[in-house]
Design a protein around this nucleic acid. Structure first.
Lengths: 198, 198
DNA sequence: ACCTGAACACCGTTCAAGT
DNA sequence: ACCTGAACACCGTTCAAGT
């Protein structure tokens, strides 16, 4: 009788719980269904309580993107071309798991794509690619990557056939891009630069 | 004394005038500065008057994109590769003139990029490229195009040097993409398909 | 110190009343 | 018929009052 257990707000609020709930709403109802008030009510509090953990809605959205993207880790000891391919595919797969956050990533939090690109850049440098070439590959590939997740965003689940064609187009684009870049970059100076595959 | 000329609402409202004013606001204050109420007050009316010409805010935004993109016309009688290059550059130049609408184009009105792609597809077919190849080129190039305008959206005017590097990256990407696609598509079947340039 | 309701300054849009 | 103000159902966030 002394300590009355409240019925709903089971756990204490925390930044993690807030981001989790926000992602759940975004996945379920899309980005336009995610408001501070709705998020709060789903957590059993008033809207203003959120501001003890998040300075801003913009900051919340950025945290959402960071949660989704997390870390994309790349294998070591493989050829530069494989690194690029794996990066391209894993970034796409990761992002498409939570399609709702794509517009956020593209508009308010462009930095995250930068930081993903930095990961690729580091891996390429470690694999022996020259700084200039690595930079160029990363910049170009990031553009194709961004456009692909953007344009493939809607029909990801519905229409298996459509999704398959998008995957094929993506593969073709990555291959073509890497082939074409191999022709352009340091044509014969760098011995272990990014070359054709076979 | 009979007909008193109102001071502000000089011209009658029209869909064109509304879209013009909306674009002006978007260019000046960005997309978040564009609200139906503000747009209306800038035109000297109440918000609800706009709904006689536009069913929706979404429809207004779509009209905005259409106004910006307008028609991208392509030259006839040039090689497929040149058609692609000209398309890529003119679309980018056109879109970057009104950067505020890029998010709209990418999210609410993805159809417009489709219709731009259709223009390219038609031009390629007319130049003798096979349907499959033309389709593949268009799909891949559209993805690179979308990602490029997205990622280059912010620093377009400020920092001449940054803009120049973005232009160079874009050129490199287009060249690499077309080179790489030439290697992939109909390697030796189609006599006048998309081949290497020189 | 931490928390949070009421209040403020906005939204897009419906709806009914004006001409 | 065309137009449009008031009103509704929302926003994100400030601010002052609560513990």
């Amino acid at each position: 009788m002394l300590s009355v257990p409240e019925p709903r707000p089971v756990e204490r609020l925390s930044r993690d719980r807030i981001v989790d709930a926000a992602l759940a709403i975004a996945d379920r109802d899309g980005l336009e269904g995610l408001s501070m008030r709705r998020l709060a009510s789903e957590l059993g509090t008033g809207a203003m309580s959120l501001y003890n953990y998040v300075p801003d809605k913009k900051a919340l959205l950025d945290a959402l993107v960071e949660r989704v993207v997390g870390t994309v880790d790349l294998p070591v000891g493989v050829a530069p071309r494989q690194i690029c391919q794996i990066w391209a595919h894993s970034v796409r797969t990761t992002i498409c798991r939570h399609r709702a956050v794509i517009p956020v990533m593209m508009t308010t939090d462009r930095s995250i794509l930068r930081s993903l690109a930095v990961v690729l850049f580091g891996a390429l440098r470690d694999a022996g690619v020259g700084a200039g070439d690595a930079q160029a590959v990363v910049e170009v590939l990031a553009r194709f990557e961004a456009g692909s997740v953007m344009l493939d965003a809607d029909a990801a689940q519905r229409h298996e056939s459509r999704r398959r064609r998008q995957d094929a187009t993506f593969d073709l684009g990555v291959t073509a891009l890497l082939d074409g870049l191999a022709l352009q970059l340091t044509p014969d100076r760098n011995p272990n630069g990014s070359r054709q595959p076979e």
